[in-house]
Design a protein around this nucleic acid. Sequence first.
DNA 1: TATTGTTATACTCTATAACTATA
DNA 2: TATAGTTATAGAGTATAACAATA
Lengths: 145, 145
Amino acid sequence: MPSKPPRPDLAALLTPLLRALVAAELPVLAAHDLTMWGYVVLSALDRSSMRTQAALAEAIGADKTRIIRTLDDLQERGFIERHPDPDDRRVRLLAITAAGRAVKDAAQAEIQRGEEHRLAALSAEERRVFLRVLMQLTHGETGGG
Amino acid sequence: MPSKPPRPDLAALLTPLLRALVAAELPVLAAHDLTMWGYVVLSALDRSSMRTQAALAEAIGADKTRIIRTLDDLQERGFIERHPDPDDRRVRLLAITAAGRAVKDAAQAEIQRGEEHRLAALSAEERRVFLRVLMQLTHGETGGG
DNA sequence: TATTGTTATACTCTATAACTATA
DNA sequence: TATAGTTATAGAGTATAACAATA
């Protein structure tokens, strides 16, 4: 007879946790008038400016056609700048603005406060190992802002 | 000026990892002629039989209307049994069959072999803490097979 | 001709509502 | 009348394909 696996599948463990984390994020983002994609874009551009929209899309694991409305909206509200590159007028240079960084930082602070509530159940050692391993396993995977 | 957060958001860490895990699972499931929902249903019924389809749907975080086609398919292939309850002929008693367990175990073994490849980068201590914390954080969240 | 960004279209997935049968 | 399951419809989200501008 086949032996029972000693642990659940990783995806089966991660799915409900991620679902709960996203559900907790959405009201916070809504309070800051941000969509999840808007927040992901701001977070990515806060890490680094981008030379093309396609590069940004790939960096966050999205389709290039999918983020256009998001970029339009963020630009209209002054959260990002989108300038044609003088050297190649096909491409759009993307950067976050001070206002964009402010709204992103405010939302993120509130999100992480909620996360800290969950992590409070862990010991300092558990927390340290968990976050380190998570970053290690995630590192190298594509996309995901 | 606002201070930078000392860590990424948890959802931002989990998303690319889960995406990669699912992407790795799909070809394995396809090779066993299973959809992700089919696999999730078999895994749930392997843990415990269910008295109603609604209960199963809630257990895996799905809509009750969403799993009907999946149940039809699994039943046709002899992977689950679905009997009207004699005490209340509205409800369907759900249970996995030996054949269903076999295909689920085979797919799961292959999936976890792939996962072990990822986890191989961890020390025994890291692995132990990571999995324990993951189960602890996931525990209490609803759904997710 | 190849590439960036954009728009238009089609498709998949999911949720909502309406229906049948039991109770 | 209320509930389990089912079916039908509609909506959201996403991907595919076609297009305009630039190189």
